[in-house]
Structures are given as structure tokens and as C-alpha cells.
Design a protein around this nucleic acid. Structure first.
Lengths: 203, 203
DNA sequence: CGTGACCTTGACCATTTGGTCAAAAAGAAA
DNA sequence: TTTCTTTTTGACCAAATGGTCAAGGTCACG
């Protein structure tokens, strides 16, 4: 639908550089607040050159978002209905926390898009995302019904995992400011969230 | 430090209109993405007129943020060391959730400021905010030590309350998209979070 | 080494942006 | 009504912004 793929190596390399720079800039300033000049400079290209690889600012943003959706939902897809409920969910929490550690800019990019009303994503949310979440919610409901998981609203349980884990990427400055220096937020969160969810999930 | 207070009624009224409009615009687009024209139009003033009341875009933003910090932390201040641990914390959760319901724009304004690295707030975070949180964390630690509260890291417990409650304001579009129509996210969250925290907090 | 496709750029453009200013238009006080 | 202060605005500005374009440079490949 979007691009028929880069052909040459130069294209592959430069499109990647642009996206890398754009991720940085968009995640720091949001779509409106980002400028092509800033992205171009950070990518080491001239502005017209940048616009040779992407026809507009919007295309860059959309490309980033599209490329990210899958990565973002993979951990949830991996939730296995055949596994042990508590261990599956704890593993999901761990994977999401890992993403806050490894891909904080991506997390912030998403966060800003959503906070700003998801003007360039709304469709995807109501279709793809909803479908996947509904499917997994059904799995959780089954586990609860079978007495293998605490009887909690599955949708809100999933929201709670998102919010608790992404918080450490999105609100990083705040978390660090409050904890003070010398503490590693996500290392601590790993322990804290394991305790928290063990208590919440036990039937 | 900032403004010696509006004198006339006209000033009082118009400054208020500007701040109201600015809250709307800033919370939708972030600082960089907001424009004075948009704020002025929404406030029903001409741009030069707007700049008669606030000397710059930045002053509007800072005024908003400053005026909000107290409101934002009030619920935490109300946490009473002399009360019952579980009830105090559950009341705190309810108050915070109430703020997501009543002041979603304010929540998003804060969220964006933090996500973008809090360029205009960092001091406040590391001083005022940290001080208050540290104080209350000490209370929680005492409760845990006395066996009246589960032994969990108090800072992260507070983070978890923030993230779980603010999520319903900041990620409103996503939550609604996933839940589908006809469900009231925050009403459901009230029930869900009460269950969740009762399980987490019990000694 | 020639040549056609691909890549890069300097100059340019219309629009938008944050902000200024002098002068006109209310208000308030007398 | 007069006078003085406070508000409001149209015209204006320099800088920044997203984007274009023609011309020149580079590359792979026969």
C-alpha cells in the first residue's frame, strides 16, 4: 500500500537513516512540533535530499507508525492460550518492560500519537488492535472461568499491563527525578511488577 | 515571581479565557505544535490582544503548568498517615481516577510535558515533587513495617497509582477504541482498580 | 569509457509563525 | 465632559516552515 520497497542499497541505507532520525525527533516533539530541517540535519542529509526519499513529513511519520505497530503488539501475540495463565501473563509483562528498556523512543512516539488523539492511527486502533485484544481477552476470560486466574475484567487487565510497563519509558524523566540518582527504574520495576501481578493474578 | 495578579475585571476574565483556550490547544498538540493563532481564535481574541495579556507563548505555557502542579498533587497530600493504610490508598486511587474523569486535558498537558522531557518543569520535578513523594513514601514504608500494608516498594507503588489512573485520561482514544462503544472506561476502571489494589495492598 | 538511471543540491517560494507598534477605541474617575 | 488609563486592533516584520525544481554529480553496467 505505501512503498513498493527500496530498490538500491543507497535507498535502503538512506531511508533507514531518515527513519532513525525521525524517530528521535518525532518522539521528542510530536508530529507538529518536529521539523524537516531537524530531521534532515540529524540524518545527515539536505532537506531536498530527504524529500527525495519521502514525499512529505506525513509520509515519514506514517511509515514509522506502521512499521512499529507489529513490533508493538508482538508480545501480546505471543501470549499462549495453552500455557500456564500466571506464567504467560508474567512473561508478557516482562516482554513489555523489556520494550520500555530497549525501545523507549518508540514507546514515546506511540504515546504522543495516542495522547494527541491518534489522528493518523485511529483506524488501526479500532480494527487490528481491537481484534487482537478481544481475542486475547477471550483467552483470559476462559482462564478465569476455569479458576486458573483471578476473576478480573480481561480488557482492563491488559490496559493495566500496558500502562504499568510503558510508564517507565514514557514518564522516564519524572520517574528518575522522583527516585533520585543511582537507582535503575526498570530494574526495580521488574521486581515490583512481578510481585504486584503475582498478587493480582492468583485465583 | 510570575505575575503580580490581574488588577481589573477585564484582565481577570481575559487571562482566564486565554488559559482555558491554551489548555485545550496545548493538550492537543504539545507546546511546539500549538500556535498562538489557534489559541487566540479559540479564546475569541486577536493575536496582538492575546499578547497584551501574556508576553509570550512560553509564558502562557508556564502559567498553565504552574497553576496545575498544586491541583495535581493535592490528592497525594491528602494521604493521611493517621488513617487506615488500605482505605487511605484506595481513596487516593479514587481521587486520582476522578481527576482523569474531570480534568483529562490537564492530564494530557502534563503527560506531554513529561514525555517530551519536561523542558519547562524539570526543577519542580526534582525538588517539590520528589520531596512530597519521598515524604509519603516514608509513610508507606512505616505502614509496611508495621504489617498494615503489603511489603512493596513505596515509590513504585505510587508510580503504579499514577500510571493506572492517568492512563484513562491520557490514552482515552486507545481505551475507547479497544473497548468499543457503549462502555464507560472510567466507570469500569473504578471497579477494576479497587479489586486490583485490594489484592496488592493487603498485608 | 559511455550512457542512462539514480542521487544530491543551491536557489527559490508561498505560507505560517511568534512577536511588535502606533494609533484608535473603550472605560473609569473627576 | 474632560482627562487619563486601560484595551483592542490593523498593518507590519523577520525568521522558520514544508515543499519545489532545474541543473549538476555519481553510479552501475554494458
Amino acid at each position: 500500500m505505501s512503498n513498493p520497497k527500496p530498490r538500491t542499497r543507497i535507498q535502503e541505507k538512506n531511508r533507514a537513516r531518515v527513519l532513525e532520525a525521525a524517530l528521535d525527533v518525532f518522539s521528542r516533539h510530536g508530529f507538529r512540533g518536529a521539523t524537516l530541517d531537524e530531521i534532515a540535519t540529524e540524518a545527515g542529509l539536505s532537506k531536498p535530499n530527504l524529500l527525495y526519499y519521502f514525499v512529505s513529513k506525513e509520509e515519514i511519520h506514517v511509515t514509522l507508525l506502521e512499521g512499529l505497530v507489529d513490533t508493538w503488539l508482538d508480545p501480546l501475540r505471543d501470549l499462549d492460550a495453552a500455557g500456564d495463565p500466571q506464567e504467560e501473563l508474567l512473561a508478557y509483562v516482562r516482554r513489555k518492560l523489556q520494550m520500555s528498556r530497549d525501545l523507549p523512543r518508540e514507546s514515546r512516539l506511540f504515546a504522543q500519537e495516542i495522547v494527541q488523539g491518534a489522528p493518523r492511527m485511529k483506524d488501526g486502533l479500532a480494527t487490528d488492535l481491537k481484534a487482537l485484544v478481544d481475542e486475547k481477552a477471550e483467552v483470559l476470560r476462559g482462564w478465569s472461568a476455569a479458576g486458573r486466574l483471578a476473576p478480573v475484567d480481561p480488557h482492563h487487565l491488559i490496559f493495566s499491563i500496558w500502562s504499568l510497563t510503558q510508564h517507565y519509558a514514557d514518564f522516564d524523566v519524572q520517574v528518575r527525578a522522583v527516585l533520585g540518582e543511582g537507582r535503575e527504574p526498570i530494574d526495580e520495576a521488574e521486581v515490583f511488577l512481578e510481585t504486584l501481578f503475582r498478587r493480582v493474578l492468583a485465583p
